[in-house]
Design a protein around this nucleic acid. Structure first.
Lengths: 146, 146
DNA sequence: ATGGGACCTCCAGCGACTGGAGGTTCAAGC
DNA sequence: GCTTGAACCTCCAGTCGCTGGAGGTCCCAT
């Protein structure tokens, strides 16, 4: 019913190298797939989606623990609701912080690109933009002028 | 004029461990600071900001090459304007993709948290949310219902 | 002047891959 | 139904970005 993929198909579809896919399996990120008589791995849609998720989460810079937790959440969505809830809330906080920083960095790169296009590069502030050594204090976004 | 920091001060201010700070210096991410008679490192405001930038950029999941490029851009804002411009544009694209994915993941976690709070956990879709194995095709955000 | 915490260098180890060696399987074309 | 070469298999050593420990020195508050 659901399509069957070789490890190479999966690699092509997700951009994750076969070697890395095997490694993910070994480390328990990806469930062991079925095998052909000869021992070749055979994947299904579920593997494809899960691998895509892992790749994007890694690209976004989430720690392996957070990814494991999210996968756990996906695997057992109705088990231990309270835990799932607090995990989700925690991740939302994390994500909001990222969104804020990315938006600030984007704005600064925008400004630079705009100036640059005009032939005059102003002072570069990308470091300042992303250098706020916060640790909670002054997390109010209204504090950063623009 | 500008304050002087020990490696420990820097570590406390940025959340980067002294060991890692020394390693950043060794690898050329951070310029070698002044030293006391006895050989202890002495940093200034510039180091502080630059280190904060590196930390945030790493947390956001940027590749080391991209970070190096951004630092380069910051160091020579008016040198080779065209290069700076295209680099900035490229990074903006990257950032927009991240912003989209993060927003999607956030929305899904939100939905889960909301359901969860009500005592009923629906189907978990976080994997689907972040599993789009795109590579350019279908990058239109309007395609993803919500 | 001294005690102990912070600092120094050097180096080995770890997590997350990556790549190569050496051998087997699969499937497309004859 | 045989061939042949690309894709797959396992095992294992190497890389990158840190991290931690050993063994020793510096700094400064008392």
């Amino acid at each position: 019913m659901s399509a069957a993929y070789s490890i190479g198909d999966l690699a092509r579809a997700t951009g994750v190298k076969p070697t890395t896919i095997r490694w993910y399996e070994q480390e328990g990120w990806l469930p062991p797939p079925a095998r052909t008589e000869g021992g070749h791995r055979v994947y299904g849609e579920g593997h494809l989606r899960r691998l895509g998720f892992i790749r994007h989460a890694r690209e976004l810079g989430f720690e392996s623990e957070a990814i494991r937790a999210l996968l756990e959440l996906a695997d057992h969505p109705d088990a231990d609701c309270g835990k799932a809830h607090s995990l989700a809330i925690g991740q939302i906080r994390e994500i909001d912080a990222r969104l804020r920083r990315l938006a600030a960095l984007r704005a600064e790169l925008d400004r630079m690109a705009a100036n640059c296009a005009g032939g005059v590069v102003g002072q570069c502030r990308i470091i300042e933009t992303l250098s706020d050594f916060d640790h909670g204090h002054c997390a109010d976004p209204s504090h950063r002028g623009q």
